[in-house]
Nucleic acid binder design. Structure first.
Length: 747
RNA sequence: GCCCUGGUGGCGAAACUGGUAGACGCGCAGGACUUAAAAUCCUGUUUGCAGCAAUGCAAGUGCGGGUUCAAGUCCCGCCUGGGGCACCA
């Protein structure tokens, strides 16, 4: 099938180099770097004995060429056809047939399963002069390098496995004590042996020397390879941007700019055509009239002036790679964004997204951006200068345990056997100890026996043994069946939940059924989904927003736990009470703020300002709590403090801040207010309570002025009774004094 | 297999450049206000030992070593949860 591809591989090196300029998480950069997969080595041509054909290989280890004892081609390599000998043809053909049936997934699945076939031909090692049998095997991929490798079994794991399987020579060319007959030794930290003029050279020197030798011989050259492939751009589905291309004599032509954008045609069904064409093949009006320059009825196609349009559509990333540029100038009919505007807005300042886009969207988007820059449409090399990965909010699944035990009832005369199953839903902590609940099961087994249809009431039975205990099932239950925010199951609700559970019987602990809890992705099938709308309805959007921030660092995944939300809600109510009294209403005064009040405020301004910069929102919320606790203790209701505090909290609780701001008499929005500035003078202290340690263990706290000389501090520290006690009469070796931090006396 | 990430109280977490581990919040326990409840406020809450108590001592950040006056933080070797990639020569 003919497919459109984006030649992203032409940008591999720039995409790799560009990573150095980005403020992105290292793991994300690593995975792009790995995906691009740059490797440096050499391309080398090998002569084939008795043929004019040559086999060209790519290798990153040309320094091990003296250890290359055989050759492996990809089964799809066109050379296979010509070099396979008559005797080997049947074997090779059947191997190709076999591998072509395997899907790529199958191929990957049995990495350990070595397979291949001998072509019957030999290549000649240009340096050792040895004959190298040529094999084919599916561990060599046609799509990478040249689709052929020189196999160095002593120093490559895959080649080693292959050599073992087909009994091929393994020749050590890198110094090591390991037995290369047993396992390959793949280190790059190596020195050449058995390699003629390379002997004694390390990896880097040997590589440089052999590449120049290869070039001198005229059989190859040093080269760089990228693992990254071109990206298939065609999609055989309806929804997507149509490709503005028409075909004339089988050749593609672009539509004129005036015909753009080419819109999706109407179709009756979004399915492929009977001939197997994509859904656009069903369109009635989707042909290009070259003479009249417009899209016309498909029936009019005559291949003279009316031609068929491309039927495949573009993939999702055709749009997702550059939509943000359009945001800069959304109403422009001429271009996607006027250059002056995209220059003005520049790059996306901050991109928050998941790391799952590492090798897809985020790479395509960079590529696309570079291309647009090369064409002169925009000015930035990179679309997203700063990027952070947010963690996922996970669900807290709940489980009940259905625990089944079978008993064997034997009649007194030993003639009748009845199997009596007993099943209970067992509360979490009673499950650990079966002997504890054994009697409950046994009692139930006796009851069940009496109603068993095999039961003969004229006989006496003894219930003996458990014949099966393995019937334990953990069943997801909907978290709405829990009581409040606890782990306790509402057993009646559970019974009503599903007909299967209507007759459920429980073994409780302290009168409660406690479910097992586990952190999993939120998913309907796991019944652990918490709907934000419900939380917002109950607590308000500000509480919800702040609680999400308070949960922990933004880049970490964490379970949603509704329990803690009360704390944030209480905090907002407490802060509100600094401004409002239930009876008296607005209680903010114009009194002058005191030193402790100003210190509380400015400590907070400092922390919030710094923590916002490093995206540490959870610690911001903590600081607000500390501040409000302090102001409440100080009984502070002063405008000088509280007005700034309201602005400060605006990014965290915007509705709340807006309301307070208006109460202060402002008519404009709080978002337009100046963000409070930290002033150091309110926070500086001139003394510090120092932890004083003896040999690293803190023993006492002593207060000293910050500008006190070390010598005087030492004198006072050594005179302190607690320190004297811990010195036990020994003379201190030295005293470590870190200004503003701590003091340590070393004995 | 390879790459990345995390592991700190009963729980979510804090400790930014090595410098008082557990801030802040939840939960729990006790108390105040109230006829009662809600709301609110106060006290305690890492563990162990001693003490009526204030307090004191010891241990403690997944495990084992190391560097340092000082390690949750740095180094070496492991264990373990999560995510991604996977025959790329």
């Amino acid at each position: 099938m003919m497919q459109w591809s984006m030649r992203i591989s032409a940008y591999s090196e720039r995409l790799l180099q560009g990573l150095k300029t980005l403020d992105w998480p290292q793991p994300l950069k690593d995975s792009q770097e790995y995906w691009i997969g740059k490797s440096q080595g050499a391309q080398v041509r090998f002569n084939v004995e008795g043929h004019d054909e040559i086999v060209e290989v790519f290798t990153t280890r040309p320094d091990t060429i003296f250890g290359a004892t055989f050759m492996v081609l990809a089964p799809e390599n066109p050379l296979v056809e010509t070099i396979t000998t008559a005797e080997q043809k049947a074997e090779v053909d059947s191997y190709i047939e076999e591998t072509s049936k395997k899907t790529e997934r199958d191929r990957m699945a049995d990495v350990k399963n070595v397979s291949g076939a001998f072509t019957g031909s030999y290549a000649l090692n240009p340096f050792s002069g040895e004959k190298m049998p040529i094999y084919i095997s599916d561990y060599v991929l046609m799509g990478y390098g040249t689709g052929a490798v020189m196999a160095v079994p002593a120093h490559d794991e895959r080649d080693h496995r292959f050599a073992k399987k087909f009994n091929l020579e393994i020749k050590k060319v890198v110094e090591t004590d390991e037995d290369v007959q047993e396992a390959s030794f793949d280190s790059k930290d190596s020195v050449c042996v058995n390699s003629d003029f390379l002997n004694g050279l390390n990896y880097n020197d040997a590589k440089a020397l052999i590449i120049s030798a290869i070039e001198k011989k005229g059989i190859g050259h040093g080269t760089t390879n990228y693992r990254q492939r071109d990206a298939i751009f065609s999609r055989q589905r309806y929804w997507g941007e149509p490709v503005p291309i028409y075909y004339k004599d089988g050749m593609p032509y672009t539509l004129p700019t005036s015909a753009l954008p080419l819109e999706l045609p109407e179709v009756e069904k979004y399915l492929p055509t009977e001939d197997g064409d994509p859904p656009l093949g069903n369109a009635k009006v989707f042909a290009w009239d070259e003479a009249n320059q417009k899209v016309v009825d498909t029936n009019l196609i005559d291949e003279k002036t009316v031609f068929p349009l491309e039927l495949s559509t573009m993939p999702g990333w055709a749009g997702s790679s550059w939509y943000f540029l359009r945001y800069m100038d959304p109403k422009n009919d001429e271009v996607f964004a006027k250059k002056e505007l995209s220059d003005y807005w520049g790059q996306v300042d901050l991109y928050i997204g998941g790391s799952e886009h590492a090798t897809g969207h985020l790479l395509y988007s960079r590529f696309w951006n570079m291309f647009l820059k090369d064409r002169g449409y925009i000015n930035q090399d990179e679309p997203f200068q700063k990027l952070i990965n947010q963690g996922m909010i996970l669900g807290m699944s709940a489980f009940v345990t259905r625990y089944g035990v079978s008993y064997k009832a034997v009649s007194e005369d030993g003639l009748d056997f009845i199997t009596v199953p007993v099943t209970f839903y067992v509360s979490k902590n009673r499950l650990n100890n079966f002997s504890d609940i054994q009697n409950i099961y046994l009692e139930k087994a006796k009851q069940n026996l009496l109603v068993h249809n095999g039961y003969n009431k004229d006989k006496k039975y003894s219930i003996e043994i458990i014949i099966e205990t393995s019937n334990t099932q953990n069943i997801h239950v909907d978290i709405s069946l829990l009581k409040g925010t606890s782990d306790e199951l509402d057993t009646e609700a559970f019974k009503a939940w599903r007909p299967d559970y209507a007759d459920a019987e429980f073994i409780l602990e302290d009168g409660k059924y406690i479910t097992g809890r586990e952190v999993e992705k939120m998913s309907k099938s796991k019944y652990n989904v918490v709907n934000p709308d419900d939380i917002v309805a109950q607590f308000g959007a500000d509480t919800f927003r702040m609680y999400e921030m308070f949960l922990g660092p933004i880049e970490m995944s964490k379970p949603w736990d509704t329990k803690g939300i009360e704390g944030v809600h209480r905090f907002l109510k407490k802060m509100w009470r600094l401004y409002f009294d239930e009876q008296r209403g607005w209680i903010v005064t114009d009194d002058t703020a005191t030193e402790p009040e100003l210190r509380a405020l400015h400590k907070t301004i400092k922390k919030i300002t710094e923590d916002i910069e490093r995206f540490s929102f959870n610690t911001c919320v903590s600081q607000f709590m500390i501040c409000v606790n302090e102001l409440a203790t100080l009984n502070c209701h002063k405008r000088e403090i509280l007005e700034k505090l309201a602005v400060l909290i605006c990014p965290f609780a915007p509705h709340f801040a807006e309301e307070l701001w208006h109460q202060f008499g402002h008519s404009s929005s709080v978002v337009a207010a100046d963000f409070p500035r930290y002033e150091e003078k309110y926070v500086v202290e001139n003394s510090k309570m120092y932890p004083v340690a003896v040999n690293g263990k803190t023993r006492v706290e002593l207060e000293f002025p910050l500008d006190m000389e070390q010598a005087s501090i030492e004198k006072e520290v050594l005179a302190d009774p607690t320190i004297i006690k811990w010195l036990e009469g020994k003379a201190p070796k030295k005293v470590i004094y870190v200004k503003g931090k701590m003091i340590n006396v070393v004995v």
